[in-house]
Design a protein around this nucleic acid. Structure first.
Ligand SMILES: [Zn+2]
Ligand SMILES: [Zn+2]
Length: 836
DNA sequence: TTTACGCATAATGTACTCTG
DNA sequence: GCAGAGTACATTATGCGTAA
C-alpha cells in the first residue's frame, strides 16, 4: 500500500491534537524521547532544533510508545536472564512518571554528548539494571582503542576516522578510518542495491549519526577517498581462504607430529628418571577416560574431527551465514564443549586449565592459539536466549552417557574429577609441554611457509614493505596489482561514487508515483509557504508540471489523487479513504471549521520527502522514524510564523552551506585546529572560500587582507562546529581552556542547525575592525549575513533570545582567535601571495 | 484496533587472524 | 613488528505475522 505524505500529516494532526496527555518530568520516556530527537538531529544534519521541546507538553503517542516498547523488549530478550520485567505498553501512561534513567540500548560510541553508548556490546538497559555488575558472558567489548596483542605490541587508535571522527588505527581502503567504517565500507561499497537517504543527502556523519543514514555514510566514504577497488573480489577471497586453510592444516599437522615425537621421547625419559606416578583415582580414570593419553586422543580425534570440523567451519562460517551455523555447527560444538555442561565458563584463559582437559582435542583442534580462542569464544552464543535462538538441546553433547534424565552430568562426578589435583598437575604439565612444542613448531613452520610462498612466487619481484607510508595517491592499476601480489583482489570495474545528481536521478526513476519536484524547489516552497502567506505563486522549475502552473495546487492535486487512487484498500468507502483530505477531516469534525488548519495540512504534507515516506509506510511499519517525523511536524506546528527569505538570502544561505560541505569534503573536519593554519589547511580553506560569491569577487589584495585578519576567527567557529573530530593538539592549555569554555555556552544548542554556524563562520570572516581598510568593503556583506543569520536562527527557534545568545559567544571567539593568531605566528605575506 | 509477542534477519561494531 | 586486508562473532534494530 502506498502512503502519501498527506495521509501521514493528517494522521499526525490527529495524534498531536486529539490525544493530548501531560507527561511527567524526569520520566525515562522523556530521556528516551530527547534521545530520539537527537537521533533525528543527527539524521537530518539538524534540520530542526529539538532542544526546545518542553516534554511536559508532549502528547502521549502510541507509535512512540510502541517503538519504546519494542526497543525495551528487544533489550530484554537479549539480556538473557534477568528478573526485571518490561513495563507493559499498556502501562506506559502509568509508568510515564518512573524515575529510572534511560540508557539507550543501541550501539554507539562514547563520544556522544548523550552518553549514547554501549559500544557494540550491550549497555545496561533500563530493564537490566544489574547487567554491568553481572559477569559478562560476551567476549566482545567496546573498542578500547588498542588492538591485537599484548604489552607494548598493542596497536593504538591515535588517529581520527576521516568519515565519522571516531578513533582510528590506520588506513583502510586508502583512507584513515575507524574499524566500523572500514567494515561498513567493505560491506556496502559494492552493493548494487540502492540505498536512499531519507533526508536531504547531506547528513552529517559522526560517531552517533553514522548508523542513521547509510547513503550519506557511504557517500562520505567515497568522498574522503575510500576505494572500492581495493576490496578483495569474491574469487580472491576464496583463493585466500583456501590458502589459509592449507597453511593451517600443514602447520597443524607438522606441529602435532613434532609434539608427539618430543612427547614420546620425554615420556621414555620420564619413565626412567622419575618415581612411580602418584595414584590416580581409578574411578575417574575409568569413568570418563579422565586421563587418556594425549597422544591417543590426538591420534584418534585429530584427523577425524579437526580437519573435518575445520572444513565444516570454513565452509559454513561466514558473516552472512551466522544463523545457519547454529544448526550446522552443532556437532562440532558438541565435541568442542564436551565438558561445557559441567563448567559454566569457558573463557580463553581457561582453555588449558587441567579440569577442562577432558577433551582437549577440539581446542587444539583449531589450528592456532588464536583460532582456539575464536572457536572457544563461540561458546557465548549460548548467551543468546535459548528459548528464542536455540530450540534444540543446544550444545549439550548427545553422546554423553553419564547424563541423567535432566540432561545434566551428575555433580558428584564433576567434583571428583576436579578435585584430583595430581591428575590435574600432570595434565597441565603435559599440556604445557605440548603447547610449547606447538608454538615452537609454529614458528618454524611460519618461516617455512613464508619461504614456500616466496618460492611459489618465483619470478615475482618482492614487494617492498610500505609500513608507515601512506598508500599511493594513485593506486596501482589492477593489472599491476595482480602482478605484484597474487593475494590482492582482481579489481572490479571502477564505478564512480554517487553524486548528488545521480542520486536525484535514481530517486526520480524509482517510482512513478513519486513526487519528483527537485527538493530544492520543494524546500523553497515550504519555506515561503507559511501559514501566514498561503498564496504561494511558485511555479515548477523541473518540468514535471506545465510551465507557469501553480506548484502548490499541482502538488496538492497530485497528493490527493495519489492518496486515494493508490490505496490498496479493497473497499473505497472505508474510513481510511474518507479521511483522505483535509476537507474530509473538516467534515468529520477532526479539524476546526476555519480554513487555516486545512491550509496548514496541505502545506505540512509537503514537508516530508514523499519518496521516503512511501518506503517508510510500506516496508517499515515499526520504524521509529515515523514518530520522529511526527515530531518534526509537531515542531512545524509550533512555529506558525517561519521567516521568509529573500532570493538573495537563499542564495547566500546555499553558498555558506556549500562552503561547509566543501570543508567536509576536503577533510578539514579531521584536521587539528593548529593544522588548519598550516599551508595545506589554509590553502584548502581559501580555495573553498571561493564558493562565497561576495568573497570571490573581492579584489585580490582585499582577499589577502581578509584572510590575514580573520582566518583565525573563521577557523575557531569551524572548530566549534567540528570539535568532536578536530583535535586541539599542540594548542596551549590556556587557549584550549578558553576554547572548550565556549562549548559550554547555551548557544551550542544551535549547533544542531549547521546553517547557523556555517553562517556565523562567514560573518566572523567579514568581522573586520571599523578602522580597517576593509571595513567599507565588507561591512555591507557582513550586515547581510547578519540578517540572514537572524532568520536562520529564528526559523526553528521557539525563543526570542536565541539570536542574541548566539552573539554572546562572538567576543570569546574573537579573543580565542587573537590568541590563536599569536600562537601560530599569523600568516606570512609571501604565502598569502601564492593563494590568490 | 491496539498491544504483546515470537521469530527471522539485516545491520553494525569489535576483536581477532592472516599475509606480505 | 606492523599495516591493512578479511573473518567471526555478539549484539542491536527492524519488520512481519498472529493472537489476545
Ligand atoms: Zn568511522
Ligand atoms: Zn543522508
Amino acid at each position: 500500500m502506498t502512503c502519501s505524505p498527506f495521509k501521514v500529516s493528517l494522521r499526525l494532526y490527529v495524534i498531536f491534537y486529539l490525544q493530548p496527555v501531560q507527561v511527567a518530568n524526569n520520566s525515562p520516556y522523556r530521556k528516551q524521547f530527547i534521545f530520539q530527537q537527537t537521533k533525528l538531529y543527527n539524521k537530518t544534519g539538524a534540520a530542526e532544533n529539538y532542544s526546545h521541546y518542553d516534554y511536559h507538553q508532549m502528547p502521549y503517542n502510541s507509535s512512540v510508545a510502541t517503538s519504546m516498547y519494542n526497543t525495551r523488549r528487544s533489550a530484554y530478550l537479549n539480556a538473557c536472564s534477568t528478573s526485571e520485567t518490561i513495563t507493559s505498553q499498556r502501562n506506559h501512561l502509568a509508568s510515564w512518571s518512573q524515575d529510572d534513567d534511560y540508557i539507550p540500548t543501541s550501539c554507539g560510541s562514547n563520544n556522544s554528548p548523550l552518553q549514547y553508548h554501549s559500544a557494540k556490546g550491550r549497555s545496561s538497559s533500563p530493564i537490566d539494571q544489574n547487567y554491568e555488575t553481572r559477569e559478562k558472558k560476551s567476549s566482545r567489548k567496546r573498542a578500547n582503542t588498542t588492538s591485537s596483542g599484548s604489552g607494548e605490541n598493542k596497536r593504538t587508535a591515535n588517529k581520527i576516522c576521516r568519515v565519522c571522527g571516531d578513533k582510528a588505527f590506520s588506513y583502510n581502503f586508502n583512507v584513515i578510518t575507524c574499524e566500523s567504517c572500514k567494515a561498513f565500507f567493505r560491506r556496502n561499497a559494492n552493493k548494487e542495491k540502492e540505498i536512499r537517504c531519507p533526508f536531504n543527502e547531506r547528513c552529517e556523519i559522526n560517531t552517533v549519526s553514522r548508523r542513521f543514514c547509510q547513503r550519506c555514510r557511504l557517500a562520505k566514504c567515497f568522498n574522503v577517498g575510500m576505494k572500492k577497488e581495493w576490496i578483495m573480489s569474491d574469487e580472491a577471497r576464496l583463493e585466500k581462504k583456501q590458502r589459509v586453510e592449507e597453511n593451517r592444516e600443514r602447520r597443524l599437522q607438522d606441529a602435532l607430529n613434532r609434539a608427539m615425537e618430543e612427547d614420546s621421547i620425554d615420556s621414555e625419559e620420564q619413565s626412567l628418571d622419575e618415581a612411580p606416578e602418584p595414584q590416580m583415582n581409578q574411578q575417574n580414570m575409568q569413568d570418563e577416560s579422565m586421563l587418556p593419553s594425549m597422544q591417543q586422543q590426538m591420534n584418534q580425534n585429530q584427523n577425524q574431527n579437526q580437519n573435518q570440523n575445520q572444513n565444516q567451519q570454513y565452509q559454513m562460517k561466514d558473516d552472512s551465514k551466522q544463523n545457519a551455523m547454529f544448526s550446522q555447527n552443532n556437532d562440532f560444538s558438541n565435541h568442542a564443549y564436551d565438558f561445557a555442561g559441567m563448567t559454566s565458563h569457558t573463557s580463553t584463559s581457561q582453555l588449558y586449565h587441567p579440569h577442562q582437559m577432558v577433551d582437549p582435542i577440539p581446542t587444539t583442534g583449531a589450528s592456532s592459539t588464536a583460532d582456539v580462542s575464536a572457536t572457544t569464544t563461540s561458546m557465548p552464543t549460548m548467551d543468546i536466549d535459548p528459548t528464542t535462538t536455540m530450540t534444540s538441546n543446544g550444545f549439550m553433547p548427545p553422546s554423553l552417557a553419564r547424563m541423567d534424565q535432566s540432561g545434566l552430568i551428575p555433580p558428584v562426578e564433576v567434583e571428583q574429577t576436579l578435585l584430583n589435583v595430581q591428575a590435574q598437575a600432570q595434565l597441565a604439565a603435559q599440556v604445557q609441554h605440548v603447547q610449547a612444542a606447538i608454538n615452537h613448531q609454529q614458528q618454524q613452520l611460519a618461516a617455512a611457509v613464508v619461504a614456500q610462498q616466496v618460492v611459489a612466487q618465483m619470478g615475482v619481484p618482492p614487494v617492498p614493505a610500505t609500513n608507515n607510508l601512506p598508500p599511493p595517491i594513485i593506486p596501482p592499476t589492477p593489472a599491476l596489482q595482480q602482478n605484484l601480489n597474487p593475494m590482492t583482489p582482481i579489481a572490479p570495474q571502477i564505478i564512480q561514487p554517487p553524486t548528488g545528481n545521480v542520486v536525484m536521478n535514481q530517486i526520480n526513476q524509482q517510482n512513478s508515483d513519486m513526487i519528483t519536484i527537485p527538493k530544492e524547489v520543494l524546500l523553497k516552497l515550504i519555506q515561503s509557504n507559511s501559514i501566514r502567506s498561503m498564496s504561494c505563486s511558485c511555479s515548477c522549475a523541473c518540468g514535471r508540471y506545465p510551465p507557469g502552473s501553480n506548484i502548490v495546487e499541482e502538488v496538492t492535486k497530485d497528493l490527493l489523487n495519489g492518496g486515494s487512487s493508490n490505496s490498496s484498500s479493497a473497499d473505497p468507502q472505508k474510513e481510511e479513504t474518507r479521511l483522505e483530505t483535509a476537507e474530509d477531516m473538516q467534515r468529520n469534525g477532526l479539524l476546526p471549521s476555519d480554513d487555516s488548519s486545512v491550509q496548514w495540512l496541505n502545506s505540512a504534507a509537503l514537508n516530508i520527502d514523499p519518496s521516503y515516506m512511501e518506503d517508510s509506510c510500506s516496508s517499515r511499519r515499526d520504524s521509529v522514524f515515523i514518530p520522529l517525523l511526527e515530531n518534526d511536524l509537531f515542531s512545524a506546528l509550533s512555529d506558525p510564523v517561519p521567516p521568509e527569505f529573500t532570493d538573495l538570502e537563499k542564495e547566500k544561505l546555499s553558498e555558506v552551506n556549500a562552503l561547509a560541505n566543501q570543508w567536509m569534503n576536503d577533510g578539514l573536519d579531521s584536521f587539528s585546529l593548529l593544522e588548519l593554519h598550516k599551508d595545506r589547511g589554509v590553502r584548502l580553506i581559501t580555495n573553498g572560500l571561493r564558493i562565497i560569491t561576495s568573497f570571490d569577487s573581492l579584489p585580490r589584495e582585499d582577499k589577502k587582507l581578509l584572510v590575514y585578519q580573520r582566518l583565525h576567527a573563521y577557523c575557531v567557529v569551524k572548530w566549534i562546529q567540528h570539535n568532536e573530530s578536530m583535535s586541539l593538539e599542540g594548542i596551549k592549555s590556556d587557549l584550549a581552556h578558553k576554547l572548550t569554555r565556549i562549548l559550554e555556552h547555551d548557544a551550542m544548542n544551535l549547533r544542531v542547525q549547521p546553517s547557523v554556524f556555517n553562517t556565523l563562520a562567514v560573518i566572523l570572516l567579514y568581522h573586520v575592525d571599523e578602522q580597517s581598510d576593509l571595513a567599507d568593503t565588507v561591512q555591507g556583506d557582513r550586515d547581510e549575513y547578519m540578517k540572514l543569520l537572524q532568520k536562520v536562527v529564528a526559523m526553528n527557534s521557539m525563543r526570542d533570545d536565541e539570536f542574541s545568545q548566539l552573539l554572546e559567544i562572538v567576543p570569546d571567539v574573537l579573543s580565542a582567535a587573537a590568541y590563536l593568531c599569536e600562537l601560530t605566528g599569523g600568516l606570512q605575506e609571501y604565502f598569502l601571495d601564492t593563494l590568490f
